[in-house]
């Protein structure tokens, strides 16, 4: 969409098709690209090449690592750690769905109903970002403490009996269970869902709603046939912005989780820093990247919004 803004405003349809491009300024787009490209090369392409190389090396810290094209590392890593991959994907998916369920109504409210409270609510959405990710996550340890009000209430309402039966929690606690990790992920990435949703909803012309009403659409039908389809770009970018970082996150699993909630990010961290098995760590990173890329591609194709985001 942004590329369209470059188009010259008054277009005379009668003009001849091929106007010779002006000589000067022909390379301007490339010059403008230069800083960004350099940045990408130094901080993205080069590290990627380095990691790709690491993933096919063998050796040890003392003897050094050499490229031996040992692709079996990928296979071994996948065979060993597929449960963590699966867990990462399912936690991230659960968090994304929760974010959408929580974020959509809020974004809708801010875009259409908030009136003069709009700015205040927006600030409230963004405000948590002024504190560190770690602090925000640690705060949940206090909120969900075993002897805290939240857990006590959930216990007396027997909610935790149900979630324990489903395997989301263990016993009468929330912390150190899958539920806590998913809640932490949802909380931490919620603004990434709300902001794109809001931008997309806010652009919808209010007159379309009126028109739908004039054509005897009930509010729900208006939402289903008009508002939601028009907000799809927001839904798609919001879900991507939530799902991708959530799948690679390890902080929530580390602080709010337990041994059976470790995600692939934790495995990669352990392999890199503790076990010093750099090839396996690099291979795991690439498998994660490839997996996410594949899922995202399918998702974008399926949602038919390729040209909208």
């Amino acid at each position: 969409m942004s590329t369209l803004t470059e188009a010259p405003a008054p277009l005379a349809p009668a003009e001849p098709e091929h106007k010779p491009p002006r000589k000067r300024g022909r390379f301007t787009p490339y010059w403008l690209l230069l800083p960004g490209m350099l940045w990408l090369i130094v901080f993205f392409a080069l590290p990627m090449i380095y990691q790709a190389s690491t993933s096919v090396q063998t050796g040890s810290l003392e003897d050094g690592y050499k490229v031996t094209w040992h692709f079996a590392t990928y296979w071994d890593a996948l065979g060993e750690y597929w449960p963590q991959f699966l867990r990462s994907v399912s936690y991230a998916a659960a968090a994304t769905v929760l974010c959408l369920l929580l974020g959509y109504p809020l974004a809708y409210l801010i875009a259409f109903r908030a009136g003069r409270w709009k700015n205040l609510i927006m600030i409230l959405v963004i405000a948590p970002f002024f504190t560190s990710f770690l602090i925000r996550t640690l705060a949940w340890k206090t909120i969900l403490a075993d002897s805290g009000v939240v857990v006590h209430t959930l216990n007396s309402l027997h909610v935790l009996d149900v979630t324990s039966w489903l395997g989301w929690t263990a016993g009468d606690r929330v912390l150190a269970t899958p539920l806590a990790v998913v809640c932490g992920l949802t909380y931490n990435f919620l603004p990434f869902m709300i902001l794109p949703l809001y931008t997309s909803l806010e652009r919808i012309d209010g007159r379309l709603h009126e028109a739908a009403g004039d054509l005897y659409a009930k509010p729900w039908t208006t939402f289903r046939k008009v508002t939601f389809p028009l907000s799809m770009p927001g839904v798609v970018s919001g879900t991507l912005l939530t799902f991708i970082p959530a799948a690679g996150d390890y902080v929530n699993a580390e602080l709010l989780g337990s041994t059976d909630t470790r995600m692939i990010g934790n495995v990669i961290q352990t392999q890199f820093l503790r076990i010093l098995d750099y090839p396996t760590a690099a291979a795991l990173s690439f498998i994660l990247m490839a997996g996410i890329l594949a899922m995202v591609t399918i998702y974008i194709r399926r949602s038919g919004t390729e040209d909208l985001v």
């Binding site: 490209m37 990408l40 090369i41 392409a45 990627m48 090449i49 380095y50 790709a52 190389s53 690491t54 096919v56 090396q57 050796g59 810290l61 003392e62 003897d63 050094g64 690592y65 050499k66 490229v67 094209w69 750099y278």
Partner: peptide, 24 residues
């Protein structure tokens, strides 16, 4: 274009040029 370029520039040769020297 840039993805292709990066791959071409990186190349498989660059991969094998990397390595971590022996420490001790």
């Amino acid at each position: 274009a840039s993805a292709g370029g990066a791959l071409a520039a990186g190349g498989l040769g660059a991969l094998s040029a990397c390595g971590i020297p022996a420490a001790g």
